[in-house]
Design a protein around this nucleic acid. Structure first.
Lengths: 153, 153
DNA sequence: CCCATAAGGTTGCGAGCGCAACCAATTGTG
DNA sequence: CACAATTGGTTGCGCTCGCAACCTTATGGG
């Protein structure tokens, strides 16, 4: 080991990928929040529940927790709030009376059909700052990292 | 507009980049937490303060908040805890007696020199799952997104 | 058939965080 | 020089979250 390599290493957070990823994710969330927060009065857990239930009718809280990677208590509370706002409804499952099947109400479905195009458009507008080639490279890297960290569904 | 395009759009969270970025950032943080949490008893705010002060001796809480993008109260509390553990120390600035210059103590510097190589190694091990080309593409995309969202320092 | 164990879901509680208000020191302006 | 406005930093408060404990229903083994 040379004297040079003994010199104290430093770490610039601004160049440290874990930090940059957190910062980027927060920035993108903020970029998206305008859609579901100020316009529909949803917070992140509620938005995730709406998005999940909207494409998986009759799913359970269990399923929502697993696919959104939220803690089951967070899901439970988000569901309770959405039910209070009459956006979703629950019915005890026939097969297993511990489970409760979650569905969008009419009002919930109306919000969903309005919300989803706005969210997708927001995502598209963000990604439009990347060239086609850059987008492909970025997504490829994300997928590899997700697989490595076993984050996929 | 065709009848087909009137069909209700759906949104799969698992294919939605904002969600995937949050999930990835959380996964990477968890991957890294083993280093600073279980081994050195630091939480994220404390780790970020240590990292910042370690390469910017005598900086202010202000500076830490700006470069880590943490709320100033979060920084204030992290500093107070680290000071309580005698890892950093503060001295009132001569030029402006509102400011307090933050520095690592001897023990803090010892932790820093032990911590930084482990964190960098952890980052390198994570990124090693990407090919050189994939890594370059991923980082290029990140930089463009950061610039677009004005997340840089 | 009974009881131990597990699984779906909810709730009490403590910890962490952001907002707003605040204190102290500085700067700017008449 | 005085006083308003600003800035660095801390603190009280309310909110959200995760953990652990709990209730209810289902399952499995003797």
């Amino acid at each position: 080991m040379t004297a040079r390599s003994m010199a104290e290493q430093t770490l610039e957070l601004g160049a440290f990928v874990p930090f940059r990823l957190n910062r980027l994710a927060a920035g993108v969330s903020r970029h998206l929040a305008a859609v579901y927060q100020s316009r529909f009065g949803l917070d992140i857990p509620q938005w995730r529940v709406m998005a999940t239930v909207g494409s998986k009718h009759g799913c359970t809280a269990q399923y929502i927790a697993a696919s959104t990677r939220m803690h089951k208590t967070r899901v439970s509370r988000a569901i309770a709030e959405l039910e209070g706002r009459q956006l979703i409804e629950r019915a005890s499952s026939e097969q297993d009376r511990r489970e409760r099947e979650v569905r969008l109400t009419k009002a919930g479905r109306r919000m969903y059909t309005e919300l989803v195009p706005l969210a997708l458009e927001r995502e598209a507008r963000l990604l439009a700052c990347l060239s086609g080639e850059q987008l492909a490279g970025f997504l490829a890297g994300m997928e590899t990292l997700e697989r490595y960290l076993q984050l996929e569904d």
